[in-house]
């Protein structure tokens, strides 16, 4: 498979170089919103959605910047675009589907400070992906984030019922879990690489 093959781009963002487990992006929500399965699921969906939107916005903005030779403003523009994209998404969802808004609403502000979104925009720029590739890349990244979040949530719910020793309770155990998950995902390295 070629590195710019769409399937490969998806798999790469999804499991091979998972944003959370290989790049440590979006760790705050990963640790913060993974205590319950349904919140994790909603958070994953919301993130995936915002990723799609902001990745496309970033693609457009980058085209403009390159056109006018203003690459040094890239970071400032990206962060501004992402923040406003989240706002727009929030408003749109509120209008279109109040039900969805109720489910996702509280997570949207959290997503603005999620470095995975900005990371996605930056990575796709560095990798010089075209429009379609950006789309697939962000879908993969979002799906990967959701997968990691769901796995983590499942494990944490299970461990809620465990007699965890007092010193490892709390964040330490979450990091160890994330480490083991990360170890697990190393098995997917090289997938489709030949």
């Amino acid at each position: 498979m070629q590195p710019d093959d769409l399937t490969f781009i998806f798999l790469n963002a999804f499991i091979i170089n998972n944003f959370v487990l290989a790049f440590f992006l979006g760790l705050c929500p990963f640790l913060g919103v993974s205590a319950k399965l349904d919140t994790a699921w909603n958070m994953g969906l919301a993130t995936m959605f915002v990723m799609l939107v902001s990745s496309l916005c970033a693609y457009g903005v980058n085209m403009l910047l390159v056109e006018f030779n203003l690459e040094f403003l890239r970071l400032i523009c990206y962060i501004a675009v992402i923040a406003s994209a989240v706002q727009l998404v929030e408003i749109t969802i509120k209008k279109v589907s109040p039900e969805l808004f109720r489910a996702l609403g509280i997570f949207l502000p959290l997503i603005t400070t999620n470095c995975a979104i900005l990371g996605l925009a930056l990575f796709q720029t560095f990798k010089e992906y075209d429009f379609l590739q950006c789309l697939v890349y962000s879908a993969g990244a979002g799906a990967g984030f959701t997968l990691a979040l769901m796995l983590m949530a499942g494990l944490r719910v299970k461990l809620d019922l465990a007699d965890v020793p007092s010193i490892s309770r709390g964040s330490a155990i979450s990091f160890m879990l994330a480490g083991i998950l990360s170890l697990t995902f190393m098995g997917f390295a090289g997938l489709g690489g030949h």
Partner: peptide, 20 residues
């Protein structure tokens, strides 16, 4: 990457052990 998680986890363990 897993090492990163393990090392920060280990530091946190050490701190909470000392605290306890």
């Amino acid at each position: 990457p897993p090492g990163g998680f393990f090392v920060i986890g280990a530091w946190l363990l050490l701190f909470s052990w000392l605290k306890e």
